[in-house]
Design a protein around this nucleic acid. Structure first.
Length: 483
RNA sequence: GGUCUGUUGGUCAAGUGGUUAAGACGCUGCCCUCUCACGGCAGAAUCAGGGGUUCGACUCCCCUACAGACUGCCA
């Protein structure tokens, strides 16, 4: 059994879509689970869609997610170059295409756009175009003459019009398609670049790829690759098609849906580890019931035969939950460091931010939750007096006013403003009066925050904002309640 | 329209002829509690429909329905 070699072959057209990320992840896991090689190949044959900087995004994303490649443009493994435009520059694809022409498996096509458009038929509002093998009928002399005259042309594969082609996918099983459906697809474009269909097959073979991992959207076109492999007499690799990831409407994730790319998710406050973990479980599940997996653990547990066939909805709610799990499990210092920018967004004064970070740690799901959760430390926003009424605490505006008036002197006399000391003082008051703790704490917390809920209790808030500010806020609340 | 693929609770899913049909997210309720969150406990909710095959089908076959993908000189 030869060493497993998988590849991730993205096109540099923009940010990395989560579907792509998962494909990369699965390719990586399949290779690494068997101690194989994971190869990065850049498929930049589409000059129109090529985006400056997109290659860097690919490198950066793989680096950050830990999907480190063993071979690639920056790591020669002996089967390079690993960038298709560079491979094309050496005439590689043309050479193979010409071989096919000589064998009669491919032919030059000089049809222009106008003629191609005349082949379009409209069925139920959809444009269907089937090439009619027009140029296959050209004589060798005619072809030579057109070539010599420099006429624009493409090279097409000569597909049989009858019979069927079957290919084997390790997830979906045998898939058979009528050859008439396969069409004479283009191998080499007018601009001299190979199409994805062609470059893919040639490169996968030349690079010794054993498992081709790709999205399910290629499933129906896969049989045409078999024809190509057959024509070349090459061994067909193992195919692993991954189920689609869809949005809530069960449609293929689009770039417009907001949660589509890895970088978008990072900007939305998610952690890389959580994204990788989550995406791994979309279309694959481990043998046990565990859900939290590090990349290393995924490598260990991953068995691609358990990849499912049906599409999976990308559920932001569950991603958030998982992200929250990672947040809670995170080392305090690390969390503090990552939360800092978000804390500073809302907090300008001098606080013990480390303390606030810890308050928030078990309460947020994404970093972007932070600012609005802590903004009350900075100052109390306008709130309604009805907030003092709490059924369970048995408090209302009147009782609250009384509690605030009675505790104000205690808090004024209090020197030690740490949480425990404050709580002890107030507890003594509660006990003396025979109240319930919440009956006293609710109005205090409300007065201090103006919020229905806060990431800290009344005394913790006092500790953070200090005596002066505490007194000030309680006085303001008394005034508000007296009015 | 054609081709291909899929269909277990709202979502992710386990399940491969005999199960009380796991688990997770979310939801609801309760407990804990200086609010919320965390944590703990409990609960509601699923095999698309119809035919077969079989002693027995979520599991195998067929049909229907629905959904999605593809149908580019894009990948």
């Amino acid at each position: 059994m030869s060493k497993v070699r998988t590849r991730f072959a993205p096109s540099p057209t923009g940010r990395m879509h989560v579907g792509n990320l998962r494909t990369a992840l699965y390719a990586y896991l399949i290779a690494k689970h068997d101690k194989g090689d994971f190869i990065l190949r850049i498929e930049d044959t589409d000059q129109e869609r090529y985006m400056e900087g997109a290659v860097d995004i690919i490198y950066r994303t793989l680096e950050k997610t830990g999907l480190l490649h063993d071979e690639g443009p920056d790591k020669d493994g002996g089967v390079g170059p690993y960038v298709q435009s560079e491979r094309n520059a050496s005439g590689l694809y043309l050479k193979y295409a010409k071989q096919l022409i000589e064998q009669g498996d491919a032919y030059y096509c000089f049809c222009d756009q106008e003629r191609l458009d005349s082949l379009v038929s409209n069925i139920n509002g959809k444009e269907i175009r089937i090439y009619d093998k027009h140029c296959l009928k050209l004589s060798k002399e005619e072809v030579e003459a057109k070539l010599a005259a420099g006429e624009p042309h493409v090279i097409r594969f000569n597909m049989p019009t009858e019979g069927t082609t079957t290919f084997q996918d390790d997830i979906y099983g045998a898939i058979t398609v009528p050859n008439a459906e396969l069409e004479d697809f283009i191998l080499i474009k007018t601009d001299g670049y190979p199409t994805y269909n062609f470059a893919n097959v040639v490169d996968d073979h030349l690079m010794g790829i054993t498992h081709v991992v790709r999205g399910n959207e290629y499933l129906s076109s896969a049989p045409k690759y078999n024809r190509l492999y057959e024509a070349f007499g090459w061994e067909v690799p193992t195919y692993v098609h991954c189920p689609l990831i869809t949005n809530e409407e069960h449609q293929k994730l689009s770039k417009r849906s907001g949660h589509s790319s890895y970088e978008d998710l990072i900007e939305q406050g998610f952690l890389t580890e959580a994204i990788v973990n989550f995406v791994a479980l979309l279309g694959w599940s481990p043998q046990d019931n565990r859900e939290i997996y590090s990349l290393e653990e995924l490598v260990e547990a991953f068995d691609y035969r358990h990849i499912s066939k049906s599409p999976a909805v990308f559920d932001m709610v569950k991603l958030k939950w998982m992200n929250g799990e990672y947040m809670k499990a995170m080392d305090e210092d690390m969390f503090y460091e990552m939360a800092l920018p978000y804390l500073k967004q809302a907090l300008k004064k001098d606080y013990d931010l480390k303390k606030i970070a810890n308050m928030v740690k078990s309460r947020i799901e994404v970093f972007t939750d932070i600012p609005e959760m802590v903004d009350f430390f900075e100052n109390v926003l306008e709130y309604d007096v009805s907030m003092y009424t709490h059924k369970k605490m048995k408090s209302n505006a009147e009782t609250s006013l009384q509690v605030l008036q009675e505790t104000l002197p205690l808090l004024t006399a209090q020197e030690d403003y740490n949480n425990d000391a404050l709580f002890a003082t107030l507890s003594a008051y509660v006990k003396e009066k025979g109240y319930k703790t919440g009956f006293v704490m609710w109005p205090l917390r409300t007065a201090l925050s103006g919020k229905q809920m806060t990431p800290a209790g009344a005394t913790e808030i006092m500790e953070v904002i200090g005596k002066e500010e505490t007194i000030k806020r309680i006085q303001a609340a008394i005034e508000k309640l007296s009015a």
